[in-house]
C-alpha cells in the first residue's frame, strides 16, 4: 500500500503562550486535493509551514509521503512544493528567470531547468509574458507564476496557503483552473482557504480547523449536508414582515431561520429534500399572505454558519471580531 501523502498525529506548536496547533490530527490519502478550511488565526499557515519543514513542532508526529519531517527534512523538501500566502516571486526578474532559478535550486542542470520553465509557462498561459519582469504582472499572473515555480520539479505534494486571497474574482477562477488537473499530473494538493465555496470547488476532501484542531472533516457534500445545505435568503421590503416570514419558513426538525433586522433578511438552511419541500410551502404561504419581497436568493453557507452548525460555537476568528467591535 502506498504511503499516506500526509500523516499528522497530535501536532502541537506553541508560540510563547499562544498555542497555534493544539493536537492536530490529519491524514491525506494519495491522489486528491485536500482543503484545510478555517478562519484567520485557526492555525492553517502554521500547519502548512510545519509540513514544509519550516518550523520545529513542540510535539506530535508528522510524515510526508512516509518520510519523517523532523528526521529527514531535506528528503521531505525533495517531494514538496510550497506556494505561500503571498506570491513570493522576484519582481525584478522575468517569469522565465524566476522559474529557472527555482528549478536550478531544485538541483536541475541548466538545460533541464530551461525546459521545465518553458513547460510550466505554457501550461499556465504565461508563455506570451515569459520574458517580461514579474513586477509588470497582474496579481493573478503573479500567483500563477508562484504556483508554477513549485511545479518545475513535479512535486508529489503541493502546498498552497490561501492561494486566492487578495485576488479579484476573475483571477481567482483562473487560478482555480490552474489548480485543477494537478492531481492527474501526479501531484497531490493541500490548500488552505477561508472560503467554503473555494474548498468545495477544488477539493475532494475538506478538513475544517479552528484553534489548531480539526473540527470536522469529510467530502464537501457530506459536510454541507451536516450544516443544512445551501442557504435560502428572503429579503423583505417591510421590516414588520420579518417575524411572519421567519415563522412561515420554520420547519420542525430543521435549523431555525435567522433574522437580520438591519438588512431585512431572513436566512435559513435549505436542508434535505423534505426540507426543501417545506420551504416551498412556506414561500407559498408568504405569498398568499401578501408579504412584499424585495429579493430572494440561494447561496453557499458561510464559514461562520458552518462553524455554528458543526460546533454550536462561533469560531475563534468571529469571537475576536466581535470582541473588537
Amino acid at each position: 500500500m502506498a504511503d499516506l501523502t500526509i500523516e499528522a498525529r497530535g501536532l502541537i506548536k506553541r508560540f510563547g503562550k499562544k498555542t497555534a496547533l493544539d493536537g492536530l490530527d490529519l491524514a491525506v490519502e494519495p491522489g486528491q486535493v485536500v482543503a484545510v478550511l478555517g478562519p484567520n488565526g485557526a492555525g492553517k499557515t502554521t500547519f502548512v509551514r510545519s509540513v514544509a519543514t519550516l518550523l520545529r513542532l513542540d510535539s506530535g508526529e508528522l510524515r510526508v509521503a512516509g518520510i519523517d519531517v523532523r528526521r529527514e527534512p531535506e528528503a521531505v523538501r525533495r517531494v514538496i512544493g510550497l506556494a505561500g500566502q503571498y506570491a513570493s516571486v522576484e519582481p525584478a526578474m522575468t517569469g522565465r528567470e524566476n522559474l529557472e532559478m527555482v528549478a536550478r535550486l531544485y538541483g536541475q542542470p541548466a538545460r533541464t531547468a530551461r525546459a521545465n520553465a518553458t513547460r510550466v509557462l505554457e501550461r499556465f498561459g504565461l508563455a506570451g509574458d515569459a520574458d517580461r519582469l514579474a513586477r509588470t504582472y497582474s496579481g493573478g499572473m503573479r500567483r500563477k507564476l508562484d504556483l508554477g515555480a513549485s511545479l518545475v520539479s513535479t512535486p508529489r505534494l503541493l502546498l498552497l496557503d490561501e492561494p486566492t486571497t487578495g485576488l479579484d474574482p476573475r483571477a481567482r477562477i483562473e487560478l482555480w483552473d490552474a489548480i485543477d488537473g494537478l492531481v492527474e499530473h501526479g501531484t497531490d494538493v493541500l490548500l488552505t482557504t477561508q472560503y467554503l465555496e473555494e474548498a468545495e470547488r477544488l477539493a475532494g476532501h475538506i478538513v475544517i480547523i479552528d484553534h489548531g484542531r480539526v473540527v470536522a472533516s469529510g467530502p464537501p457534500a457530506q459536510l454541507k449536508r451536516r450544516v443544512g445545505g445551501n442557504v435560502l435568503e428572503v429579503h423583505v421590503r417591510d421590516r414588520a414582515d420579518l417575524a411572519k416570514v421567519a415563522a412561515s419558513l420554520a420547519r420542525p426538525g430543521h435549523a431555525e431561520p435567522q433574522v437580520d433586522e438591519a438588512t431585512c433578511v431572513v436566512s435559513v438552511g435549505a436542508g434535505d429534500q423534505a426540507g426543501i419541500g417545506g420551504l416551498i410551502a412556506g414561500l407559498r404561504a408568504i405569498d398568499d399572505a401578501g408579504v412584499e419581497l424585495a429579493d430572494i436568493s440561494v447561496r453557499q453557507p458561510k464559514l461562520e454558519e458552518v462553524f455554528l452548525a458543526l460546533t454550536g460555537q462561533e469560531s475563534a476568528g468571529q469571537a475576536r471580531v466581535r470582541a473588537t467591535k
Binding site: 509551514r49 519543514t53 519550516l54 523538501r77 513570493s88 527555482v102
Partner: peptide, 14 residues
C-alpha cells in the same frame, strides 16, 4: 521574510 520568499527558498532542497 515578510513576503514568504525565504520560506519558499527554505522549502527547496538546497
Amino acid at each position: 521574510l515578510h513576503t514568504g520568499f525565504i520560506d519558499r527558498l527554505r522549502s527547496l532542497p538546497f
